[in-house]
Design a protein around this nucleic acid. Sequence first.
DNA 1: GACGATATGTATAACGTTCTACGTATAACG
DNA 2: CGTTATACGTAGAACGTTATACATATCGTC
Lengths: 340, 340
Amino acid sequence: MKNKIMGSNGRVTIKTVAADAGVSVAAVSKVLRDAYGVSEALRTKVLESIDRLGYRPSTAARGMRGQTYSVGIVMVEMANPFLPEIVAGANDVLATEKYHSMIGVGEAQLKLETALIERMIDTRMDGVLLIAPRLSGEQLARYARQLPMVVIGHHEPQAQAFDTVNSDDQMGGRITVEALVAEGHRRIAMMSLPEKGSTEVDVYRQREIGYVEAMRAAGLGDEIRILRSRERRRLVEADLATALDGPELPSAMFCWSDLHAISLLSGAKSRGIAVPERLAVVGYDNSPVAALSMIGLSSVDQGGRRLGEVAARTLLSRIGGRSAPEHLLLDPVLVRRESF
Amino acid sequence: MKNKIMGSNGRVTIKTVAADAGVSVAAVSKVLRDAYGVSEALRTKVLESIDRLGYRPSTAARGMRGQTYSVGIVMVEMANPFLPEIVAGANDVLATEKYHSMIGVGEAQLKLETALIERMIDTRMDGVLLIAPRLSGEQLARYARQLPMVVIGHHEPQAQAFDTVNSDDQMGGRITVEALVAEGHRRIAMMSLPEKGSTEVDVYRQREIGYVEAMRAAGLGDEIRILRSRERRRLVEADLATALDGPELPSAMFCWSDLHAISLLSGAKSRGIAVPERLAVVGYDNSPVAALSMIGLSSVDQGGRRLGEVAARTLLSRIGGRSAPEHLLLDPVLVRRESF
DNA sequence: GACGATATGTATAACGTTCTACGTATAACG
DNA sequence: CGTTATACGTAGAACGTTATACATATCGTC
């Protein structure tokens, strides 16, 4: 067994492969990149050496000059039950193209989000997928000029620098109201987040728009009622209690998220309010908890896995060179359970 | 404004900083690394240039020769509700030392786990934190010889090449049985996973050991009963139904995970089995779902955040050069709710 | 001032891969 | 056979940072 040319730390490098196959380093690189200018014979020889030696390219070295075949995912938080499906869907697609994703958790903090995106740029990731980012559209665009970007959970169809892939949140509000109206409900309220500081890129604002439109279309413009709950997890139950104990309990409540809907269910039960007889409840996200038979929450399903798949495909096409923006909306579905 | 020396793509590089500060590239590098051999005056000058220019080191270039100040986390799956707290705790500690974590999801698949760890090595991450890996201790040790490693959810106190940080799973079984016994329960069964293919590194095997020991200590050796549920999510409910419909329903059931416990609660309710009067139920993990008032599951709390913090600290000390192994156990706590 | 010890700052190669320029071989055509 | 076009493979620089060797400056002592 001949002496092998190894990198520092005893690692098999492209030089090891070149020596084993009896070709130049540049030839091995061409084979790895599927670049023009190597014969089939040389290619076969090199691939055999790569196999035999168990060579893996150094991602760090690739980042100096070429592609790393990695994608960053920045998630707003880890505990959100909607996100695993998105990530799984994205990873399915990425894996077919030999890409790996690396996830950073932004904790809904601008500073952290910024630091993560910048670290991904510094690591020379080929692209980034943001899920429910807190950065503004302008800030997103600035980073998108530095690396390919796709955003989920941010509605900005006029954005040029990055793509968006979303569930159609207006439609989610609409189909929920339509279904409740078809059951005879007239007093349909919506539980959302504070209006202050929000814009129409936010998913809950889009859901409100759909709710309002459908109520109007059903001739229920006078019954439009949007209640606002503070976002802090600890404050949600207090705000929901206010809604449940208020003077005019609606016959149905559409909540912008499952978390709120589940808390509402809980509060209603403890007050002896019959669900769905006295109060029908619909959430949003169709999280696994919603499906527990002890919960039985009706909920709008956004098709997280499909979202992830489409977003990853869109990102790969950006990485491949496309610069014309794409803004996609996928149809949500209302999943009915006992709460409605 | 003078011409600035910029890297490819218009990026501020170490050369830009050196030129701006009027010093050599190597001096700037020494400042960045806090290395010996630069004066305070030069240091101040360089740091001002770094600030003014908004210089960020290229992580890829750092990976060629030095440290990247990044840590990989490989998680068994994304949807596990126990994991967000671990990651949050780890990230808190890592952030104080200017490290970023990047998460890969192994989906409980050996091939994927392997590929992720290798990609983290290729990216020259400074260390890796594995959460409930499926790789064997031997395989873990092989990778741990290539980069610093800490493992959570894998009990191997004799391992030399990597560290472990775990909740004391035996103790979790023990305190549960003790509490049930103190309430007068004698027929206490445990719901666990299949014995085939498992070893004592697995958390559920450790919980079984604690269960068995505490039953014996309470003079209930004859009442030891470990039921086994297949791991596939879809099969859990069928296996639990078998347990609920069996000839001898115990008076209490200790489940190795909240998922199983919640399904058991659901099954018991649908059969009219009064919880906790006819059947007391205790889960493991104290997940957010367990705490929902509509669920009210008593559960063993592992202190995920604390686990993450300790694990990150342990990893940083490994990265800092320590090679003597550390194996830490944190005490779990039984959280009581309506199910018991 | 001379000498020795220590601190400081620079020059330069290394790290592993990609990109590009270009020399040479090969094939096709007249 | 000579000419032209194309394919193939190599040499070497680039990428941005770190690590190390070493020249020179500075400080303390005699």
